[in-house]
Design a protein around this nucleic acid. Structure first.
Lengths: 226, 226
DNA sequence: CGCGGCGTTGATCTCTGTCAATACTTGTGG
DNA sequence: CCACAAGTATTGACAGAGATCAACGCCGCG
């Protein structure tokens, strides 16, 4: 088997695979091992034919778009157990954004043809995928809402809260990638990110290198809500 | 027949119905007539059981969410021949947003069971819906990008360009609903909208009542890009 | 040791939201 | 038919958040 039991556990966390159930999932993944990517390596480029979707087994990847002026806008960052580009496959066959590994990573690719076969054989799957797509839609809408309604420090606080495992008490959190990347993800400039981080000191956030020490995650969550 | 030939023509413009073909479409719509809504009337509320989707026959409707602080955020505005809430139906059975008629309108409701049957009978339909949903996703991603990267006047310019039929030359465009609604759709306050409209004068946009006269739509498009 | 990338800090500026006052439009009732 | 009220749009003054530009510090690496 190509996936270790630990990897398998990670992969099946993805809502899409959960919806499929283990049998179909196993059929679709087959025995192809995940491909290893080096930090900075491209997974796919905007405009390429979209012939498959991806699931992160290990590491991190970013989805981004290049504007005409060359500025890069990070659309999403994916963690282990998350799938991406599933829906893009259905859109004219081209990826609407580029993806790149932001750390060394292992990423599983599932090709479009397998998926198509699976859906044709099991129409319920299509419903599950529609539901997954609908969840994503909602997340995006949430994000737009956040962008307007929350200040930079609040968005950062929210980011930390979402990445923390614990729900309360003190937390020590690694910043998994460059601060400029997080900044872009949160819709602000690196300078603003830096300053906003400073403002979080009053709610018990201390920064050291690429770690943050949070005195009480619950307090931070409260701050993020506004 | 419940739909007049003109109405029928409008309804079949919707990509979803086009994908179904006339026979399935007719079966799904049956002979129920569209319901008439008064301006301001609610179509459905956030959190209600999602037991159907909608197609605008005539008039306009908005999809919106209420934030905790009571602020209303307009997520989308729908025109005749557009369907909405198709995908939402598959998500846990609740509408994730509210919808309201913004003008007197006639709106067709197609119940979820019919759609489900149609998809089960014709799995290809699911792909079409996934494609539609993926277009929405892309629009939203674009929107986030715009919100972060473009100024208010640029977003308005973009709105006009997207609504204009021509690609170049002079255009006279109707503002089909209240300016405050457009403002909310574009993520700004009515005051900002008003001022930003004024700033568009330098790129050949004149406002009169609820019409805008655009000297050269191509020039406006260039301005929107930044 | 010096260079380059990343992050921080400081000064300043621009945009947009906020609050408030004022027109303009439309509909209503006398 | 007019007067008034309510809703909608514009305009002005002001404040705050974040962007921008520029300088500097930190650290890893050749």
């Amino acid at each position: 088997m190509a996936l270790s039991p630990q990897d398998w556990e990670v992969v099946t966390r993805a809502p899409l695979f959960k919806a499929m159930g283990p049998t179909i999932t196993r059929t679709m993944i087959g025995d192809r091992p995940p491909r290893a990517y080096a930090r900075g390596e491209t997974v796919f480029e905007q405009g390429e034919p979209a012939d498959g979707f991806f699931c992160i087994v290990d590491g991190w990847a970013k989805l981004y778009r290049l504007r005409e002026d060359g500025e890069e806008v990070v659309v999403a960052i994916f963690a282990p157990g998350e799938t991406f580009a599933e829906v893009a496959m259905f859109l004219g066959g081209r990826y609407p954004a580029s993806a790149e590994a932001v750390s060394n990573a292992r990423i599983l690719k599932i090709d479009a043809a397998s998926l198509r076969r699976a859906v044709m054989a099991e129409p319920q799957l299509a419903f599950d995928m529609l539901a997954a797509s609908s969840i994503r839609l909602r997340q995006l809408v949430d994000e737009i809402e956040q962008l307007k309604a929350r200040s930079a420090p609040q968005r950062i606080a929210d980011f930390f809260v979402k990445h923390a495992s614990a729900a309360s008490g003190p937390v020590r959190l690694a910043l998994p990638y460059e601060k400029a990347l997080i900044a872009s993800r949160l819709g602000m400039k690196p300078e603003s990110f830096s300053r906003a981080l400073g403002k979080l000191a009053v709610v018990g956030v201390a920064v050291e290198r690429d770690w943050v020490a949070i005195a009480d995650i619950a307090r931070l969550a409260a701050f993020a809500e506004g």
